[in-house]
Amino acid sequence: MSETLDWVRCRRIRPVRPGGTLVTTVAVLLGWEAVAHNSGSGWVQALGAGLAGVLLVGLGGGWFALRGARLACSSSPADGVAGLELRIEVAASTRVRVRPLEPPGPEAFAGGEDHPSTLVLLPTHRGAYGSIALEIGSAAPFGLMWWSARVDLPLGAELLVSPRTGREAAWPTHLAYTGEQPEVRAITDITESRVGYHRHIGGDPAGARSYEHGDERRHVHWPATAHVGDLMVRHHEISVPSPPVTLWADLPEDGEESERMAEGVLATVSSLVSRGRRVMLGTFENGAPVLAMVADRRQAGRRLARAGPKGPWHPHEHTGPGIVPPSDADQAGPAR
């Protein structure tokens, strides 16, 4: 058992629907003892004592099994999509039944011979998960009565479940088109913009220049090289990038409505990106605004996974270069 994993133990272990089992057990034992005691047979009474021992161990064994059980997540993905299954690997010190609660998923058994066990999650909603809620159950050693406990199993890395890709037409007025807005950068410290800078060759040919490390070989301008006697490459006039589309996802409090809206935002972003448009996505994380470029659907999904409703934030307190307040976005028409 690896000690580098983040092991968790079960707390607040409770029996699962114990009423019928306990009543049956007590009735069987009392009946047996009554018959044994009044029949005057020592062996029947001894057998009854043995039966009591087996039943008590069988009924209470699950508690001991869960009490000693340790669980850890040995592997988990970083991304997921609502509605699509994703798999994590769980290590358990003993054989237990694992039922994912949040995000939900089908029950499975972990531990024992399986090292580790694969657990399927089927998230229904977007979200960012640092841990997953599991119901751990055991009826060891005889399968007579189930005991269960709820544990929060920390994941190795945060799991970001992006929303489903909804219908583009469904996107509401919370998306804004900024027209000729220049390049916009993240405005808060908590942004996780993954926009990278890379050398780009494009535009109209404007001459030749000396070769620099990193230039592609196919851009070498052979006539100029022959003329100059040094390696020359074509020089292009870089066109001014088209202005980004800024979208603000101001999601409502209501879970389902929020989910539907996030799905619409994701659909819109995907559509824009696929058409070559640059998209600046504004979201609220823990109530604070985050505005950053998104390069593809995956980035947008990650952002929307964390996105929540607008908190106690006032646009005038955070205005500055590049800030597009939601109110402005609301005034703009939908992007097409």
Binding site: F109, E113, A140, P141, F142
Partner: peptide, 30 residues
């Protein structure tokens, strides 16, 4: 009974060590 739990928990074989421990516990209670 141990095989029943093994089947219930989709284990390939009963955990005989667990069954032995449970048997010892049952014997003590008996």
């Amino acid at each position: 009974l141990g095989a029943s739990w093994a089947s219930m928990s989709h284990a390939r074989r009963p955990a005989m060590r667990q069954v032995a421990l449970a048997g010892a516990g049952a014997l003590s209670i008996t």
